[in-house]
């Protein structure tokens, strides 16, 4: 996986943050989805006016955005009849890689994006938004990410997740415990499916 690929994924996390915290942006991008198949100008608008500008991440003295090709893929899956599966799948992969992969490589096994694992906690809208914010923080804050990923056991991981607060929001105990358990047991596909399902609900 190239450096550019990681930058694109981090820019995608930035887009998710923007979509989750700016209701007008999310409502506007969502209203374009039904038009994507029939109107090429809607695809261009979604990519150039919304996805790319809202993926801007400051790096040292410059700013980067997701590439056009990367944004084109997001636009394409957003306009697909099976978008609810394809977007789940994509966001699950991106979030896992940015937040929980120790070497920031994308794990080989892909998730199906079709369901959440049995026994996973149910997230209401507030917790869905918290999930986006906490994953965003993990993606960009090396210390926080290492404190979760280097934690020795389930309790320590859960505690590290519970400690993260962004814009006054945090994940509840149930969700932290469940995520920590899956991380300790290396149930990567289950984590990706869970993250993808709720990130799609909270941001798309």
């Amino acid at each position: 996986m190239s450096k550019q690929s990681l930058i694109n994924d981090l820019c995608c996390m930035q887009l998710l943050y923007a979509q989750a915290t700016e209701p007008s942006l999310r409502a506007m991008t969502n209203s374009l989805y039904p038009e994507l198949q029939s109107k090429p100008e809607a695809r261009k608008k979604l990519r150039d006016s919304y996805y790319i500008p809202n993926s801007k991440v400051p790096i040292r003295s410059t700013e980067v955005t997701m590439s056009k090709d990367y944004a084109d893929n997001l636009v394409q899956i957003s306009g697909a009849p099976a978008a609810n599966i394809l977007v789940n799948q994509t966001l699950g992969e991106v979030a896992y890689r940015c937040a929980f992969s120790k070497d920031r490589q994308a794990p080989f096994v892909l998730a199906a994006g079709e369901s959440v694992p049995a026994g996973a906690p149910t997230l209401d809208e507030q917790q869905q938004q918290s999930l986006v914010l906490i994953l965003w923080r993990l993606a960009f804050d090396d210390d926080k990410r290492q404190s979760v990923n280097n934690a020795k056991d389930k309790n320590e991981k859960s505690g590290a997740l519970l400690d993260i607060e962004v814009d006054g929001q945090s994940l509840n105990q149930d969700t932290c415990d469940w995520l920590a358990g899956q991380l300790v047991d290396a149930k990567i596909v289950d984590i990706k499916n869970f993250l993808g399902f709720y990130l799609y609900k909270a941001t798309w």
């Binding site: 999310r26 409502a27 506007m28 969502n30 209203s31 989805y33 039904p34 994507l36 198949q37 899956i77 957003s78 306009g79 697909a80 009849p81 978008a83 609810n84 977007v87 789940n88 809208e125 799609y200 609900k201 909270a202 798309w204």
Partner: peptide, 23 residues
């Protein structure tokens, strides 16, 4: 769309809006 009232609307929720509250 949700900003501008118009007299017609599509037959279903579709594509990227088909699995989330916003759609």
């Amino acid at each position: 769309n949700m900003i501008t009232p118009e007299p017609c609307f599509t037959g279903s929720v579709s594509a990227g809006g088909s699995g989330n509250e916003q759609g």
